[in-house]
């Protein structure tokens, strides 16, 4: 039996972590949780995920900072990242316009559409 894909959910809102964790767990994913960029790094190093859903506005290390660091990291830069945020669409354009970092593999606005996030995660974690 193939091992379950691991998804790291990074969001400062506990309710949102619980929600995404239940939603993805129901679809057979294993979920890891982190409330900010600091915790996310610890999770990545202790238990490397197959995909990360990442919030932008977080009180400690922000999602942008974490994203920049992971995409610059030679070992972890291949982990797909879906940004899930309430920050305006301008952020997506901003991220895409920055040439220092590659654009994220996915960008979803809150409130997320369940079908959309599941389809995207399944696509990005599918074995080629």
């Amino acid at each position: 039996m193939a091992s379950r894909k691991k998804i790291l959910i990074v969001d400062d809102e506990e309710d949102i972590r619980t929600y995404l964790s239940s939603l993805l767990g129901d679809q057979g994913f294993e979920t890891l949780l982190a409330k900010d960029g600091e915790e996310a790094w610890k999770q990545v190093e202790a238990n490397p995920p197959d995909l990360i859903t990442l919030d932008i506005s977080m009180p400690e290390k922000s999602g942008i900072k974490f994203y920049r660091e992971i995409k610059a990291h030679e070992r972890w830069n291949t982990i797909p990242v879906i940004i899930v945020t309430g920050v305006s669409e301008d952020m997506r354009k901003f991220l895409s316009s920055r040439h220092q970092v590659p654009p994220p593999e996915g960008y979803l606005s809150k409130p997320v559409n369940r079908e959309e996030i599941l389809t995207l995660i399944q696509k990005l974690t599918a074995v080629p």
Partner: peptide
């Protein structure tokens, strides 16, 4: 507010998902 409401709606949506499931 717009940013806050988006977060709240996601959490509400999550609550509804958990109730239904």
């Amino acid at each position: 507010i717009s940013h806050g409401i988006k977060g709240l709606l996601t959490s509400l949506d999550g609550g509804i998902y958990l109730v239904n499931s």
